[in-house]
């Protein structure tokens, strides 16, 4: 027994290293198409973006002069600094609200009988079937001064004059939370999939009440799903620009809308590229936080 234990790995060792040195043909062949698509559709454009952000340009004309002036301008402008702050804050608030709205849904879907689960699951993610532009217009109709919400509140006599629910940050938050909810719900449901019902029962038998069970068992075990959902929502909310544009009514200034304005309306490509790179850096931070959280719980 002891002999076989010590001799086996020795006998195996040469073959193992030899195997590792062989070029992994199959994995590379399988990955090649995706790598090619990524190269053309992602790596190259981003590289181009970074290059443009270091070019000087004026009035829609790109020159060949390299400069870090775009970054200096961007990072010393109080207007842009507050815009970064506002975008991060908005994305944070939207993420937290989305989480608070979606977590109970995911939890309910986890406990409901399998007969209903599939139907309810499809209903939860069905908003994805409708374009977010259409849903945003829907919110404009609902939240406007003469919209359903205000008409109802006024009609019930709860308020005297319509609330300002749209064309401001509130409108953007409401719209984004609804639009991002399916993504959050999907991530959370994936997280709940790892949760065995008997764990909660075991905790109950050990004397844990409802709240303790949630705090000590359910929440920690679903945290990877929470982290994934938050990452997705944060990134999507920073990069969304249709909803802030339409529901912000031109009064909410965020990084994504600014990139659009600078690139398409002002034709200031270097500045637009610079802001894009700044957003990419933000995403990098978010990703770092995410992987930190996930590593701690896995």
């Amino acid at each position: 027994m002891a002999v076989s234990e010590t001799s086996l790995p020795l006998a195996d060792a040469p073959t193992a290293t030899a195997r590792a040195k062989v070029f992994p043909v199959v994995p590379v062949a399988l990955l090649a198409p995706m790598m090619l698509v990524n190269l053309i559709a992602f790596i190259l454009p981003v590289a181009q973006l970074v290059r443009i952000s270091f070019l000087e340009g004026s009035g829609g004309v790109l020159t060949d002069t390299t400069t870090i002036g775009n970054y200096v301008d961007f990072l010393t402008d109080a207007y842009y600094l507050s815009m970064i702050w506002n975008s991060v804050l908005l994305a944070f608030v939207v993420t937290v609200l989305t989480l608070l709205c979606a977590y109970p849904i995911a939890m309910f879907l986890h406990t409901v009988s399998p007969r209903w689960r599939n139907l309810l699951f499809v209903m939860t993610i069905s908003p994805l079937l409708v374009s977010s532009v259409v849903r945003t217009y829907g919110w404009m109709v609902l939240l406007g001064d003469q919209g359903l919400v205000n008409n109802m509140l006024v009609g019930m006599g709860l308020i005297a004059s319509p609330l300002r629910l749209v064309n401001n940050t509130l409108g953007v938050v409401i719209g984004l939370v609804e639009i991002l909810m399916p993504y959050m719900a999907l991530s959370l449901i994936a997280g709940f999939g790892r949760l065995d019902a008997s764990l909660s029962e075991a905790a109950a038998s050990l004397g844990a009440g409802r709240l303790s069970r949630f705090r000590r068992v359910t929440l920690p075990l679903t945290l990877p799903g929470v982290a994934l959902g938050c990452l997705l929502c944060f990134v999507l909310s920073i990069s969304s620009f249709i909803t802030p544009k339409l529901l912000g009514g031109g009064r909410v200034f965020l990084l994504a809308t600014e990139i659009y304005d600078q690139a398409v309306i002002q034709l200031e490509w270097p500045l637009a590229a610079t802001i894009s790179v700044a957003v990419l850096v933000l995403f990098g931070f978010a990703l770092a936080v995410y992987s930190n959280v996930v590593r701690r719980f896995d």
């Binding site: 065995d196 764990l199 905790a203 109950a204 038998s205 050990l206 004397g207 075990l221």
Partner: peptide
Amino acid sequence: PHQRDFGLVFQNYALFPHMTVAENVAF
């Protein structure tokens, strides 16, 4: 169940995967 004061051992053990053995026992 949490007021019954019964010890329960499940077929699949149902140990809390995010806690150490000591934390499990101390729960």
